[in-house]
């Protein structure tokens, strides 16, 4: 087996048993004498704020600059004045939230009375949603309430969510929903 130095490091970082020194073709002397290279050495570093609770801890994201460009490691940001490098168990698992085979990667559609999901395109899904919104909204749009006061609202469409969004997304979202006339607009803060 031809093993490059880089591959060797990757394997040593990834195998549970640690260094398979002799079988990799390095002498033990080499393995002990040379400093191992960090798996994050050539990664892109970006800062983030943890997406779980609201303490607001900083973390550093190491993203591979090569190949698939995915996350190699996420750990606490030592220069962040709140957490000073530390993270809880959820924060420490952030990389697994990102690199997770269970994630949704395509829009999906479930037709009425169907037993299954069907993968669809973004254009198809968003076009269809806009059509549904328009049909539902327009058939019951309320210009005036029972007292005759102008209300310009929709009550048969409702929205819940989301504190999982960024501030800018939250603002944009409520603006869009309120432009449609939604009054039933709620999110996690209510529960």
């Amino acid at each position: 087996m031809q093993v490059t130095r880089r591959k060797f490091i990757k394997i040593s970082g990834a195998t549970a048993a640690g260094l398979a020194v002799s079988s990799l073709g390095f002498s033990l002397k080499d393995a002990r004498a040379h400093t191992q290279m960090l798996k994050t050495k050539y990664a892109k570093e970006t800062t983030t704020i943890c997406c779980y609770c609201a303490v607001g801890c900083g973390a550093i994201v190491h993203t591979s600059k090569k190949g698939d460009g995915r996350v190699i490691n996420i750990e606490g940001d030592p220069d962040h004045v709140i957490n000073r490098g530390s993270l809880c168990s959820k924060g420490a698992a952030l990389s697994q939230l990102t690199e997770n085979e269970n994630r949704l990667t395509e829009p999906m559609y479930r037709a009425p009375y169907s037993k299954e999901w069907k993968t669809v395109s973004w254009d198809w899904a968003l076009g269809k949603i806009a059509k549904r919104v328009k049909a539902t909204r327009d058939k019951a749009f309320t210009l005036k309430n029972a007292k005759g006061q102008v209300v310009n609202r929709v009550t048969n469409i409702v929205s819940v969510g989301s504190s999982a969004m960024d501030n800018e997304e939250c603002w944009t979202y409520q603006a869009l929903m309120r432009s449609l006339g939604l009054v039933y607009l709620e999110h996690q803060a209510r529960i």
């Binding site: 704020i49 943890c50 997406c51 779980y52 609770c53 609201a54 607001g56 969510g161 989301s162 504190s163 999982a164 969004m165 960024d166 501030n167 939250c170 603002w171 979202y173 409520q174 607009l185 709620e186 999110h187 996690q188 803060a189 209510r190």
Partner: peptide, 13 residues
Amino acid sequence: ESNVQGSTDQCLL
């Protein structure tokens, strides 16, 4: 939630 303060400030309520 990480941004339940912000989402409340932006008034998704």
